[in-house]
Design a binder for these strands. Structure first.
Lengths: 187, 187
DNA sequence: ATCATTTTTTGATCTGGATCAATTTTTTCC
DNA sequence: GGAAAAAATTGATCCAGATCAAAAAATGAT
C-alpha cells in the first residue's frame, strides 16, 4: 500500500518509516454489505479505505438506524475508543460499495508504536483529522436548518447522493428521509 | 506541573518523559473573562486547565453566540487545527472562572516532538480524548429531544449549572435558553 | 420482460421548540 | 443597601420539520 500524500506531508514521516508503515497494512478486497466492526464487539483493526465507501451507524432504543459517519476513499478510520481501549464498539460499520481496504491489527500497531517514533506521529494525525472533521460537524449542526445542513453537505461532498442511500444521508444530517427528499426536490 | 494520572496511564510515558513534558509547561493564574484564543487569529498554545472552566464559542452570521465546547479541570485543549496548521482559529475561548492554566507554545511542542517519542504519544492522547468526546456528542445530538439532551448533560456533568450561565449551556446543547429554562423548571 | 422488494416521493396533520415580548430574579458595584 | 445591569423565567404565538400514510419509482431476481 502507498500512504496518501496528505498523511506524508502532515506527519512528516521519514521515507523509512513511511514504507514501514505502508507495508505493515494488509490489503483486502471486500464486498458491499460486509461489516468491518460491530456494535458491542471489540474492534481489533485500524482501516484504510483506498477506494470505496463505509458507513458507521448505530441503532437507537426506538429501533431507528442512525448514520454516525461516512468514510470514503483514502481515509484512515477505526472505532477509536474500542480499538485503543479494547472496549465494545458503540457502532457498526458496513461497506456501502465493494471496497479496497487495508487493515492493521492493534498488536501490529503497538509493536510499531513502541519501536518507531514516526508511528506515533502517524497515529496522532489519523485521530487529529477525525477530531477536526467532527469539530466542524458539531459547529455546523447546532441551530442550522435542515436545508442549511443539506447545502453544507452538498458543498463539500457533492456526489454523496450517487453513492449512499437517501435514508443514510438523512440520518447522518439528523433529519428524516421525507424532509431530505422534499429539500432535494426543491420543496 | 504534574501530569494528570489519566494521561500517564493511557500514554504509558516513561518517568523521564513525563517530567520533561510536565516541566515544559508554564503556569499562569488567569482571571475570569480572559480570552485564551480568538476567532480569526492563530492560536499559538496548547493549554492544560488544572482548575477552572473555559468555554469555546463562535458567533454565527446572524450574530448569535454559540458555545462549541466546555473544558473544565484537568483537561488539555487548544484550537487544534489552528495550533497545528497555523491557521486562523474558528472560535474564541474565554475563561468562565478564575483558572489555573498551564501553557506550552507550538515551537516548544515541536522541539519536544522531534526529540522525544513519548511526546508524540502524549500529543496523540490529547486529540484522541477530544475525538472520543466529540463522537459521543455527535451520537447524542441527532434526533434527541431538548429534554433528552438536558438529561444526558446532567448525567455526566451534574454541577455544570453552578459553573456556567444558562444561555451558554443552552447553546452548547443546541437549544434556546427559554426552552432550557422551561425544561429545568419541570415545564 | 415480469413480478417482488426496496427506495423515494408526495400528501395531510400535528407538535416541539423557536421567536417575540414582558416580567421577575439575581448579580454587580458605587 | 439600593440603583443599575445582567440573567432567568414566564406567556403567547407560530412554523419547520416530525409523523403517519399511501402512491410512485427504482432496483433486483427469476
Amino acid at each position: 500500500m502507498r500512504l496518501p500524500a496528505y498523511i506524508k506531508s502532515m506527519a512528516q514521516l521519514s521515507a523509512e518509516s513511511e514504507s514501514k508503515i505502508a507495508q505493515a497494512f494488509h490489503r483486502r478486497e471486500l464486498q458491499k454489505g460486509e461489516l468491518l466492526f460491530r456494535q458491542g464487539e471489540v474492534c481489533h483493526h485500524i482501516f484504510y479505505i483506498e477506494k470505496g465507501l463505509a458507513r458507521v451507524f448505530y441503532n437507537t432504543e426506538s429501533g431507528k438506524d442512525v448514520t454516525a459517519w461516512f468514510f470514503a476513499d483514502n481515509n484512515f478510520f477505526t472505532a477509536h475508543d474500542s480499538f485503543y481501549q479494547h472496549k465494545p464498539a458503540p457502532n457498526n460499520c458496513e461497506l456501502l460499495e465493494d471496497s479496497d481496504v487495508y487493515t492493521l491489527t492493534y498488536s501490529e500497531m503497538v509493536a510499531m508504536l513502541n519501536d518507531n517514533h514516526d508511528m506515533a506521529k502517524f497515529a496522532f494525525h489519523t485521530v487529529y483529522l477525525l477530531a477536526k472533521q467532527q469539530a466542524e460537524f458539531i459547529n455546523g449542526i447546532k441551530f442550522q436548518s435542515a436545508e442549511e445542513r443539506y447545502n453544507a453537505l452538498m458543498h463539500h461532498y457533492p456526489n454523496i447522493f450517487q453513492r449512499a442511500k437517501l435514508r443514510h444521508i438523512a440520518s447522518f444530517l439528523g433529519i428524516t428521509q421525507e424532509t431530505l427528499s422534499r429539500i432535494r426536490g426543491g420543496k
